[in-house]
Nucleic acid binder design. Structure first.
Length: 609
RNA sequence: GCGCCCGUAGCUCAGCCGGAUAGAGCGCAGAGCUUCUAACUCUGUGGCCACAGGUUCGAGUCCUGUCGGGCGCACCA
């Protein structure tokens, strides 16, 4: 239905042709909703732009335009309001049209690869990890809703220092999993213990442990400890699953390395690789980053160490070449079943197309990774500039979400200043349960959906580039700017639908009987495609959060609306036949709109609560 | 030092490619359920949009600078 705005734009552009305008004049014709206290439903400020070129005043131009424009279907009239040109929609036709339409996006024929989560496999998820995972998950849903093919990847850094330290800790303390603590929590506590017992920032202490840790890294690189890492990953995936987050593929760093992808990648820009023969970088190989980023103390970025091993970013470059389909080489197999779809993993002994699935070959790549990885992501982008015509870099986007503070403090896994994701999820659900009526069937399930909704919404409603502070009472609030408010409006609307059906109301809807209140509601509903497009453009789900609340607020306002004497004038059950059915259709459409908005945020909307 | 992000109401934040009187929630003061769910709604309160210049018919929004806060600048990952 946002087609209407498009139709208006076209009509307005058509009207502009009747003016003698300079060839080089670039006009931005935009159609916007009028402020609520202004006449009309949509308006344009285009007269301001014309005023200068025509040496006339915008008020006169707006008047003139109002007469010249030929109105599209669905618009009843145009009127100049000062310098603005405003349009009035044909309420009956508009409402009927919105009520009977559902947003469906045509296939875009493009594949988007979204990488998110990518939590080091050495400890449990903490609240900070939730943020990027939720943003990535919501974005994946939004791209799907917009007609893109989406592949969500979770990168497992199984050869890194952190994974090694945790595995070393197990050995050092001769620890054996008690099977009662969740495995990732158990492992994480050993990691914290290790850092408590050894100050690994201290050079001497670090050096004394180094041979043993290096030995672990060696084993990790050989894949000897893969089952151990898999146990952590599985435990972490349980956390993701409880948040309703699913992936398509786990990409293991060790697989990227073993498949020879890094060598292939390096070979593709071998001519750009520098090998200093003297100075501190003698023996190493790398690239000059200065064309890509200013202000580095050392613009030379080592990609291959003097000892021939690869730094992390080099593996990441190779991974991204693979994501874009510059080469094959990885093999896959099924990892587990998720609720919605199977999860695959890279695996040395896997197949190229397990169960007929194909991976990678993305047209666009979006990495939801916190802002501290900004430089590493620039290195990846630089790597992408170095191959082909350099255009791959354009389709790589680092969605840099800011970090999460905990009650004003910087979190630290090593120091143990964290709150685990699992703990927060459990608390959110129990707080919701306390507010959920005992009479409700499936009370616990509903409370769980509400608690999770509140939690997710708290993370998603802030724009990603803003640092947020996790505070229990804000994050788990169930009133105010929260998901439960939207869920509540939805449940309320569904209840009206149920009441309507059970009473057997089935008169023909009388669309001419509906008024401005219903029109406003449907105008809000009609915005959905624009909001979705905005979220994709800005790579952020947060406008959808505002929109879900806007829908809920609009509906709640409608529901509670009173006439001048203070009596409800929107009670649906008591409305005259005809208007009643039209209103039922409007309410059902609003319920669907809320459900749809929450759905792309990864939040469920219960039918009652 | 250099780079990235942030600075809007007492607090937490929206503000879409510049457009009509800057909006929510929380808080505070009040009002509304014998009628479809009060996790709601309505009214009031509260702003030098960090500061200073610039561009523009028009700037919270764009540009430059300054000041505050966060993060990053390894042959770690």
């Amino acid at each position: 239905m946002s087609d209407l705005k498009l139709l208006l734009k076209t009509a307005l552009e058509g009207a502009l042709h009747s003016y003698m305008l300079p060839q080089d004049l670039k006009l931005e014709v935009s159609i916007q909703e009028t402020p609520s206290d202004k006449p009309g439903d949509y308006g344009s400020a285009v007269a301001f732009q014309l005023a200068k070129a025509l040496r006339s005043n915008p008020v006169q131009i707006a008047k003139d335009l109002a007469e010249k424009i030929s109105l599209p279907v669905g618009i009843s009239r145009a009127e100049a309001v000062g310098p603005y040109l405003n349009f009035f929609v044909d309420a009956a036709a508009f409402v009927q049209d919105v009520v009977s339409s559902r947003h469906t996006a045509p296939p875009q024929g493009q594949k988007v690869i979204i990488e998110h989560s990518s939590v080091n496999p050495n400890k449990e998820w903490h609240v900070g990890h939730i943020r990027g995972a939720l943003i990535g998950d919501a974005l994946a849903r939004m791209y799907r809703a917009s007609g893109y093919s989406v592949e969500v990847q979770n990168y497992i850094d199984d050869t890194g220092r952190q994974a090694a330290e945790s595995q070393f800790a197990v050995r050092h303390y001769s620890a054996i999993w008690d099977k009662t603590t969740k495995f990732d929590h158990w492992l994480g506590s050993l990691y914290v213990q290790l850092h408590k017992d050894f100050d690994l920032k201290n050079k001497e202490i670090k050096a004394s442990l180094e041979p043993q840790i290096a030995a672990v890294i060696h084993q990790l690189e050989n894949g000897e400890l893969r089952p151990e890492i898999e146990r952590v990953v599985k435990a972490q995936l349980e956390t993701a699953a409880s948040l309703g987050i699913e992936y398509d593929l786990l990409t293991w760093e060790s697989d990227v390395v073993h498949a020879g992808l890094v060598e292939q990648a390096l070979a593709m820009f071998a001519d750009r690789l520098e090998s200093p023969t003297e100075g501190k970088y003698a023996g190493a190989k790398g690239v000059d980053l200065s064309p890509f980023v200013a202000g580095l103390e050392e613009p030379f970025k080592v990609l291959v160490r003097g000892n021939g091993t690869f730094v992390y970013e080099t593996k990441d470059i190779a991974y991204h070449y693979w994501k874009f389909g510059l080469f094959e080489g990885l093999k896959f197999q099924k990892f587990s079943d998720q609720l919605e779809k199977p999860l695959y993993t890279t695996a040395p002994s896997g197949e190229l197309h397990p169960d007929g699935h194909s991976f990678a070959h993305g047209d666009r790549v979006i990495n939801v990774i916190d802002s501290r990885q900004g430089l590493a992501q620039i290195v990846v982008k630089a790597g992408l500039f170095l191959v082909g015509d350099g255009s791959y870099a354009k389709y790589h986007h680092h969605l840099a979400n800011e970090t999460v503070l905990l009650e004003g403090q910087t979190m630290s896994g090593r120091k143990g200043i964290t709150v685990s994701a699992d703990q927060v999820i459990a608390e959110a659900q129990s707080r919701a349960l306390a507010l959920t009526p005992e009479s409700l069937e499936a009370r616990e399930a509903v409370a769980s959906v509400i608690g999770l909704g509140a939690l997710k919404f708290a993370f998603l409603k802030a724009s990603p580039e803003r640092q947020i502070d996790f505070r229990w009472d804000n994050a788990l609030a169930l009133q105010g700017d929260t998901a439960p408010v939207a869920q509540y409006a939805h449940a309320r609307a569904r209840k009206i639908g149920r009441d309507g059906s059970s009473r057997g109301f089935d008169a023909a809807p009388d669309w001419d009987a509906i008024g401005g209140l219903e029109l406003d509601l449907m105008k809000t509903v009609a915005k959905y495609p624009d909001v979705l497009a905005l979220c994709l453009r800005d790579h952020s789900p947060h406008p959808m959060c505002s929109y879900a609340l806007e829908l809920a607020g609009a509906f709640n306002g409608y529901y509670n609306h009173k006439d001048a004497s203070g009596k409800s004038d929107t009670n649906i059950m008591h409305s005259p036949a005809g208007l009643r059915e039209a209103r039922l259709a409007v309410v059902a459409r609003v319920a669907y709109a809320i459900e749809e908005a929450l759905e792309v945020l990864g939040i469920d909307a219960p039918d009652e609560m």
